[in-house]
């Protein structure tokens, strides 16, 4: 059985949640997000990130502001909106459920 597809589906579902998780603590711009995901050993292609961020923003879960930088081009800092916080709580709950199920079945 080829597990590649299942794995990529899993990652796709997780990515949104992970991004919201890390924006919950502090506002980040794309490079921060990429660095943090890399630290967390989450494999992600950069190209997939931008459409995702843009979608979350259009759904009203994320907001952003431009900040000038002395270290290169201006940066777009994303933050979680109130709606985003609410969505994150729901995702948290659903993640708890999933991990409980998986842990239970693994025993």
């Amino acid at each position: 059985m080829n597990t590649d597809n299942t794995k990529s589906q899993m990652r796709k579902g997780m990515l949104e949640y992970c991004i919201m998780l890390l924006l919950h603590r502090q506002s980040c711009y794309a490079n921060d997000i990429i660095q943090r995901l890399r630290e967390a050993e989450m494999i992600v292609m950069e190209g997939t990130l931008y459409p995702l961020l843009s979608r979350l923003k259009n759904d009203g879960l994320l907001g952003y502001e431009w900040r000038e930088s002395t270290q290169g081009p201006p940066r777009k800092y994303y933050t979680l909106t109130a709606d985003g916080e609410e969505a994150l709580r729901q995702l948290d709950a659903s993640w708890e459920e999933i991990s409980r199920t998986v842990n239970f079945l693994k025993q």
Partner: peptide, 27 residues
């Protein structure tokens, strides 16, 4: 991306990312 809704923004993000990666290499 221009054909999709809100796609110009994605293309713009990518351009910013390119600029940043170039900046890092120059540094």
């Amino acid at each position: 991306f221009g054909r999709q809704e809100g796609g110009e923004e994605v293309a713009d993000d990518i351009e910013h990312r390119v600029a940043e990666l170039l900046w890092q290499r120059r540094e």
